[in-house]
Simulated assay, not measured.
Amino acid sequence: MAKVLWHVSMSLDGFIAGVGDDMGWMAGYALPEASAPDIVQRIGALVIGGRTYSLARTDAGRPYGGAFSGPMFVPTREDPQSAAPGFTFVREGLAAALELASSAAGEKDVVVFGAKTAARCMDMDLIDELLVHVLPVLLGDGVRMFEHRGGTLHRLERIGLSSGPDVVDLRYRVHR
């Protein structure tokens, strides 16, 4: 069965996108050699939130710079026929989108993109692991990696740590 992975790059002050969903601040940073070569090869499907979909459906915003070409599922209320090529709209909800993605991924990972979508997955106990690339940038404002009003405690177990010249990779297993 596919593992569900929240894979994200984050500024040192906890933001995954800048103001106005700006992602340009991530350009030019090299991932640690321990994680870089096979990340995309281990991904079988993506589950993408609505805001992230609006960015990812353009050529400039394609996931992994266009290196990933597999199935992408978007939980939404939109008409499934209106999905951009390469994307599948799932009207039955987030759990159904993850089920479809897991089936499509086979033995490979399902990656969740989008802060709100990933937070909902965390609250539904649907995330197995987190892989966070911490970049040496302070943004000061933007989209937080995890923001949950009222708070929910999620215990994590570190299962990996590597660093490169620019980026530190943190990998965690989610405790259920």
Rank of each mutant, 00 (worst) to 15 (best):
residue 118 A to L: 05
residue 101 A to E: 10
residue 109 D to T: 05
residue 112 V to T: 01
residue 96 A to F: 02
residue 92 E to H: 06
residue 100 L to Y: 03
residue 121 C to T: 00
residue 99 E to G: 14
residue 111 V to S: 13
residue 98 L to E: 04
residue 106 G to A: 04
residue 108 K to R: 15
residue 98 L to G: 03
residue 95 A to T: 08
residue 112 V to E: 02
residue 117 T to G: 01
residue 113 F to G: 09
residue 115 A to G: 07
residue 105 A to T: 07
residue 96 A to N: 07
residue 91 R to F: 05
residue 121 C to W: 01
residue 109 D to A: 12
residue 92 E to R: 14
residue 120 R to T: 04
residue 97 A to Y: 00
residue 117 T to N: 00
residue 107 E to Q: 15
residue 102 S to D: 02
residue 93 G to M: 12
residue 97 A to E: 00
residue 108 K to A: 10
residue 93 G to C: 12
residue 98 L to V: 04
residue 103 S to R: 15
residue 98 L to P: 07
residue 122 M to D: 06
residue 118 A to D: 01
residue 95 A to R: 07
residue 98 L to K: 02
residue 98 L to W: 00
residue 119 A to P: 14
residue 104 A to N: 10
residue 102 S to M: 10
residue 119 A to N: 07
residue 110 V to I: 09
residue 96 A to S: 13
residue 118 A to E: 01
residue 101 A to W: 03
residue 95 A to C: 11
residue 105 A to E: 07
residue 96 A to D: 08
residue 118 A to C: 04
residue 107 E to S: 15
residue 94 L to R: 12
residue 107 E to P: 14
residue 117 T to H: 02
residue 110 V to E: 09
residue 92 E to F: 05
residue 103 S to I: 12
residue 114 G to D: 09
residue 112 V to M: 08
residue 96 A to G: 05
residue 104 A to I: 10
residue 116 K to H: 13
residue 103 S to G: 15
residue 100 L to P: 08
residue 94 L to W: 08
residue 108 K to F: 02
residue 117 T to Y: 00
residue 100 L to A: 14
residue 99 E to N: 09
residue 120 R to K: 14
residue 96 A to L: 04
residue 114 G to I: 04
residue 121 C to K: 00
residue 109 D to I: 04
residue 100 L to F: 07
residue 98 L to I: 09
residue 113 F to A: 08
residue 122 M to E: 11
residue 92 E to K: 12
residue 106 G to I: 02
residue 93 G to R: 13
residue 93 G to N: 12
residue 101 A to M: 05
residue 98 L to S: 00
residue 111 V to H: 13
residue 108 K to G: 04
residue 105 A to M: 12
residue 107 E to T: 11
residue 104 A to T: 09
residue 107 E to R: 15
residue 94 L to H: 05
residue 103 S to H: 15
residue 94 L to E: 03
residue 104 A to C: 10
residue 116 K to S: 09
residue 122 M to P: 09
residue 118 A to K: 02
residue 104 A to R: 13
residue 94 L to Q: 10
residue 98 L to C: 04
residue 105 A to K: 07
residue 109 D to W: 11
residue 91 R to S: 12
residue 110 V to S: 10
residue 103 S to M: 15
residue 97 A to K: 02
residue 112 V to A: 03
residue 98 L to Y: 02
residue 100 L to N: 09
residue 113 F to Y: 14
residue 118 A to G: 01
